[in-house]
Design a protein around this nucleic acid. Structure first.
Length: 436
RNA sequence: GCCGCGGUGAGGUAGCGGUUAGCCUUCCGGCCUGUGGAGCCGGAUGCCUGGGUUCGAAUCCCAGCCGCGGCCCCA
């Protein structure tokens, strides 16, 4: 108990931390490349922020508690709601469009299993204020860019558009709540139940048939799917417009360099209820779960009391990507960076001289670890080799007396003795070590 | 929240009613008081927790915890 972390919450060891940092660095590079300004919001938010637009299901899966002041608060299960809150309040005065990015830890009270932790990190891109397909395409692009830079070359997308089904259902006056439920059923492949619910809410057989036929349209041949779909959709003008919208998004993303496989799936739906249009998931072939997901949410900001503001975004599952790389692509896991120079004092050299040498070397930008276990030289060398050091700086009485240091190249097994004041020579001797 | 499988030193594992709980890696010390990853010798840490059955439990039973997988849901 004392030595356990709470269920589903992980310690990140140096190796894992190095990997997480690499992924975060990539995400931040892409923030810069596309103009996303990074923000940070509190891990703890008021319960209402998330309760507003999520069903019973999500509510039960939140870390939910009462603080000492009697306020009901939660650990955020995702960040988009916080971003919408920001846009509806503090960033109201910023001229649109807004491009916001975040990297944040999120919490869900789920049963842990592969790819699902109670604490996990998401990296998000939110493009707020535009309803142009250019914006949706940009989200696909940044997703593609992040995955490519991480090295997930076999990435693919699944893209869909919840607007198409919503428009058809709307034409039968099915209200939004019921629409949500039908979409959820379709997403879970509970087709029969979905159709029953549709019939119960006034959708005639034509409507059911249309949805049924659209569900069958899934594949990579965008042209064929759009022709087939447009035939089916001809009586539904708004739905047809959504289809065109989807095609344009894909076309623009392709033009923007998204080369990976894209599966168009008109039956695709997603768990979060706030999606209103284009939606997508991104993953790799040997996983069943998504590593990134997102879509358009044009009503959320207004719901939070902001001006009606269209928005589109995605949330990259950093923790899932980490687990994938750690387990499936172990060779690509980076090693934590650590100094490659060990400074060892021998015999009765003064500790003050050791400190002085360390200070000067670090002043030159070299990362230096100081031997602090009073190891004798042979075992210090053994330790240095085992720890991947490239150089050892050895200082003893002899060196101290002449203000010198001995630099031993552990790979070439060569050693030179240099005056501590001769920075140029020291630099030369230590070539191959990255400076901080 | 539900269902199934599992938990042996730091890591990987053998044992599956009576063993001194074995092996590999790691770690520490010595050989070796200013120069090489070796070798040899020695040493350290363990049966998830709590109950029960039994003369006797790592081993069987129950509960919890943790892990893995599935449902649900999701990144």
């Amino acid at each position: 108990m004392l030595l356990d972390t709470p269920r589903g919450m992980d310690d990140l060891l140096p190796r894992e931390m190095a990997l997480k940092r690499r992924i975060e660095d990539v995400i931040r590079e892409v923030f810069k490349l596309y103009g996303y300004l990074e923000v940070e919001t509190p891990t703890v938010e008021y319960y209402e922020l998330f309760a507003l637009k999520s069903g019973e299901e999500i509510r039960e899966r939140m870390f939910d508690f009462i603080d000492k002041g009697g306020r009901r608060v939660v650990l955020r299960p995702e960040v988009t709601a916080s971003i919408a809150r920001l846009v509806a309040s503090k960033l109201k005065a910023m001229p649109p469009p807004l491009r916001l990015g975040y990297i944040a830890d999120c919490y869900r009270y789920d049963e842990p299993q592969w790819g699902r932790r109670r604490r996990f990190w998401q990296g998000g891109f939110e493009l707020i204020g535009s309803k142009d397909p250019l914006a949706d395409a940009e989200i696909l692009e940044v997703s593609y860019e992040v995955f490519s830079r991480i090295g997930l070359r076999d990435q693919y997308f699944k893209v869909g558009h919840v607007g198409i089904f919503r428009e058809i259902l709307k034409s039968y006056r099915v209200n939004e709540k019921i629409q949500d439920r039908i979409l959820t059923l379709l997403d879970r492949k509970m087709i029969v139940e979905a159709f029953d619910l549709m019939r119960k809410n006034g959708v005639d057989e034509d409507g059911v048939k249309v949805i049924e036929n659209l569900m069958k349209l899934e594949g990579t041949d965008l042209r064929k799917i759009s022709i087939d779909a447009s035939n089916i959709l001809s009586p539904w003008k708004e739905a047809y417009r959504d289809l065109e919208d989807l095609c344009e998004i894909i076309d623009l993303a392709r033009e923007g360099g998204v080369e990976s496989k894209m599966v168009v799936s008109l039956g695709l739906a997603r768990g979060l209820e706030y999606y209103t249009g284009f939606i997508f998931e991104q993953s790799v072939p040997d996983l069943r779960i998504a590593l990134n997901g997102g879509g358009r949410y044009d009503n959320l900001i207004e719901l939070f009391g902001g001006n009606p503001t269209p928005a589109v975004g995605c949330a990259i599952g950093i923790t899932r990507i980490m687990q994938y790389i750690l387990e499936k692509k172990a060779e690509e896991t980076p090693t934590p960076s650590r100094p490659r120079i060990l400074l060892t004092g021998v015999a009765d050299v003064s500790k003050r001289y050791v400190m002085k040498v360390a200070r000067i070397l670090r002043g030159m930008g070299f990362g230096v670890e100081v031997e602090v276990l009073s190891r004798k030289l042979p075992s210090a060398i053994e330790y240095a080799l085992k720890s991947g050091m490239k150089f050892m700086i050895i200082v003893g009485r002899r060196e101290e007396a002449e203000e010198k240091i001995s630099i031993r190249d552990l790979e070439l097994r060569r050693q030179v003795e240099l005056p501590l004041s001769d920075e140029e020579k020291i630099m030369e001797a230590l070539t191959g070590v990255e400076r901080v």
